[in-house]
Amino acid sequence: MMNNTKPTWRDNLKALGYLLPMLIIVGMFSLYPIIKSLAMSFYTDYNFFTNQVNAIGFDNFKTLWQDDNFHLAVWNTIVFVVGVVPVEIILSLAIASLLNQINRLAGLFRTLYFMPFVTSVVAISMVWRWIYNKDAGLLNYLLGFVGVHPIDWLNDPHYAMPALIILAIWKGLGFNILLFLVALNNVDQRLYDAAMLDGANSWQRFWHVTLPMISPMTFLVTVNAVIGSFKVFDEIFALFGGQPGPGHSTLTVVYYLYQMFYEQNKYGLAAASGVVLFLMILVVTLFQLWWSKKHVHY
């Protein structure tokens, strides 16, 4: 019965019985497609209807390398990630810190801030589409009070990406606030007392006690937010009515993948763009891991 004994074939058979339902599904729809999409990215001549591969090679990656639209998609994705993640992290940490200072109504505030997380991206993007309306939209009306002339948020290529970024930050805040609250709750109160005895003001306490103590959570939240932002799609599709923004101004890598796969039936090229997305996420995540080794205090 001990765990370190060598399992018998009966032990293995029993474990297999428990694992099998999960293994069949995960095997078919997660493990196999990972290998298959890697393979497909090299299919240069593929007939979907007969499932016949006529030629393989690096042509898909060459095409991506030369395709201006793909360059734009990569660039837009990076702009989106850089536009969303830092603001989202700073805002959610600030709000979580405020929430952590109060007792009364803290639960109510937390509930309200978190609400966007449970709402359908598509449905709430419809609402934002309406808020962003140039002539009768709520945002331009409110901006009018501070003297801003009406902006054509969704049809002006300069404003489409900012509109998308604002929506994404609004949608993602609550989730990150929740995680920061967990971390803030776990900071040992005695550290603050000690810092106070040493005469540290509230800003110094935040900078020298809070930030180092919650750095593992900041790291987790950042990695999560970066990965999530790299995969943005639903918001774009709903906000711009099935278009990647005016003049492709919000064409991202996943949107490009969707176009190649679903609209143009270029399966190999779509798979190759998926592989590039994966590599981008992998490189950025590894970089964050490396950076965290030096700056995160566990």
Binding site: F29, P33, I34, M40, G274
Partner: peptide, 12 residues
């Protein structure tokens, strides 16, 4: 990323 798996899963 799950988006990468959509293509082979659709074929399956």
């Amino acid at each position: 990323p799950g988006e990468m798996l959509i293509i082979p899963n659709f074929v399956t």
